[in-house]
Amino acid sequence: MRTMKKPLIATALLSTILLAACVPEDSAPPPVDMDPNACGASEYQELVGKNRSTLSALTFDSPVRILEPGGIMTADYSNGRLNISVNERGTITRVYCG
């Protein structure tokens, strides 16, 4: 049974090397410009600590995403999107781009 392990290990190692060779060098995504104020988040920092109901009276120049506890959100990063995090009590806890 010991002799059977060596060919399996060798086959697994060779397969890994061959698969790694198939990945093109330029397959990595381009770097994202992560300007922390690209969406104008600095203009809305005074919202932190206020109730979510405050948002209904505002208009925004960029796309807005409101993030609630336990809510579903996409993992994509959008430099120009304003994210507003709200806690379980409806209080705005964070305003940022992404």
Rank of each mutant, 00 (worst) to 15 (best):
P24K: 08
S56F: 11
L47F: 08
V23T: 08
L67K: 06
L82W: 04
I66G: 07
G40A: 03
F60Y: 08
D61Q: 11
G70D: 06
G49K: 03
R52L: 14
L82E: 03
V86F: 07
A20H: 04
A12E: 04
M4Q: 11
E68C: 00
N79S: 15
E88K: 10
K5W: 10
T11S: 14
A10D: 02
N87S: 02
I66S: 06
M1R: 10
A28Y: 06
G70Y: 09
I17D: 01
K5R: 10
M1E: 10
R89W: 00
T59I: 05
T54M: 10
S27K: 06
M34G: 02
A20W: 07
R89D: 13
E25K: 11
A10V: 13
R81N: 07
S53C: 00
P63N: 13
K6R: 10
V95A: 03
L14M: 13
V64T: 08
A10R: 04
K6S: 09
R81Y: 03
S56C: 00
D76R: 13
A28F: 12
L8W: 06
T59M: 07
P36T: 02
E46W: 10
M34F: 07
T3P: 00
V48G: 01
I9G: 07
M4D: 13
R2M: 11
S42Q: 15
I72S: 14
K50N: 10
Q45M: 07
L13G: 02
L13M: 09
T54K: 08
L47C: 02
G70N: 08
D35N: 14
L19R: 02
C97D: 01
L14S: 12
G40I: 02
P31G: 07
G49P: 02
S15M: 14
T93E: 03
L8N: 03
R81V: 10
D26F: 03
V95T: 01
L55F: 04
L14K: 01
P31T: 12
M73D: 13
P69C: 05
A57K: 13
P24Y: 08
E46R: 06
M1W: 09
S27G: 00
A20K: 04
P63V: 07
D61F: 01
I92F: 04
M4F: 14
L55P: 05
E43D: 15
A28R: 12
I72L: 15
T74E: 11
G71S: 15
T93K: 02
S78Q: 15
M4K: 11
A28T: 07
G90S: 05
